[in-house]
Amino acid sequence: MLTKKFVIKNEVGLHARPAAVFVQTVSKYKSKITIEKDGKIANAKSIVEVLSLGVEKDAEVTITAEGSDEEDAMRAIEKLIESNFGE
């Protein structure tokens, strides 16, 4: 199991397109992936749950990946967040 903390830096937070890109990206992996904010945990492959977290700019989130491709998944997530979701 891999766990990593991130600060969401892009303007709109995890809304709109960034949320869609995030869900599309993690859905490519078999691992179980969750995203946590302020103690609330969401299935990272569910757009509804990710939006319901209400992740704004500068929010800190914890992402956990567990499964056969957890390393690849975490690497992809890191890249995505660092690039500000390609904004």
């Binding site: 869900v23 299935n43 492959k45 757009i47």
Partner: peptide, 9 residues
């Protein structure tokens, strides 16, 4: 399209 495939729903 993402809503359509949402695992939580």
């Amino acid at each position: 399209l993402l809503f359509l495939d949402d695992p939580s729903i």
